[in-house]
């Protein structure tokens, strides 16, 4: 028996909106630790890892570890039917072939339940080693989204370079080139407006903008994004999910042939 009650149901809506275009089907894993997902996109270039810790739920009952295969587009369709202020409860029976999403309005005057069919998914689970990063950039998520969107109108790839001068996003296309430099800025009124660059050594990596733009669909989840870079390692683009967890996107770099 599984029963997870999330008062801030809009978080789950936002999570689904941010992954549904990247991954079609995925297994949600439920354990004492929390509600999690790890899935690769169909071309095995990008990976999404989600963790919503059990402490973040108002009520969290998971009698035994459960893996539920879901079509993310269908799950997003159902969660779209929840109001932004609704409390969302996820319910499933051990060994059952459905999951129920229950939506309660804050005043309890409307209660809806949506039952969705589960599916069997053969998913590969990848071991992600703890890595030391050469550079970690924390910046406003809306700024990062704007940069990725702007650059993708010029080119297909972005070179992200971190030096002591700051972080540079560059692209090149048929019509010309573009460079955007963001410097460290911690003298801001609100902490979410800060740009913080922790650099162990300079690093420069190239990534497909198509994927970066897809990751920025998680922007509504968090005011800040963290971009962790290391030579010839996948970049990690992380958005915190309130106080309860994170959504991390991994993207393999493009390499010189």
């Amino acid at each position: 028996m599984l029963e997870l009650r999330l008062v801030q149901g809009s978080l789950l809506k936002k999570v689904l909106e941010s992954v549904k275009d990247l991954v079609n089907d995925a297994n949600f894993d439920c354990s004492a630790t929390g509600f999690s997902l790890q899935a690769m996109d169909s071309s095995h270039v990008a990976l999404v890892a989600l963790l919503l810790r059990s402490e973040g739920f108002e009520h969290y009952r998971c009698d035994r570890n459960l893996s539920m295969g879901m079509n993310l587009n269908n799950m997003a369709k159902m969660l779209k039917c929840a109001g932004n202020d609704d409390i969302v409860t996820i319910k499933a029976d051990d060994g059952g072939d459905t999951v129920t999403f229950m939506f309660e309005s804050p005043t309890q005057d409307k209660i809806a339940d949506f039952e969705m069919k589960l599916m069997d998914i053969d998913s590969e689970h990848l071991g992600i080693p703890e890595a030391e990063f050469q550079a970690i950039v924390r910046m406003p998520s809306a700024e990062f989204a704007r940069i990725c969107k702007d650059l993708s109108s010029i080119g297909d790839t972005v070179v992200i370079s971190v030096t002591k001068e700051g972080v540079k996003f560059s692209t090149r296309g048929d019509i010309g080139t573009a460079n955007i430099v963001c410097r460290q800025n911690t003298t801001v009124d609100k902490p979410e407006d800060a740009t913080v660059i922790e650099m162990q050594e300079p690093v420069s990596l190239t990534f497909a903008l198509r994927y970066m733009n897809s990751f920025t669909k998680a922007t509504p989840l968090s005011n800040q994004v963290t971009i962790s870079l290391s030579s010839e390692l996948p970049v990690v683009v992380e958005y915190k999910v309130a106080e309860m967890g994170y959504i991390r996107f991994y993207l393999a770099p493009k390499l010189e042939e």
Binding site: H44, L126, A208, A252, K254, L255
Partner: peptide
């Protein structure tokens, strides 16, 4: 010329 590397080069299957 640049080639997109797959993730499985970096992460192993569990």
């Amino acid at each position: 010329r640049q080639e997109q590397s797959p993730l499985t080069i970096y992460f192993h299957n569990l």
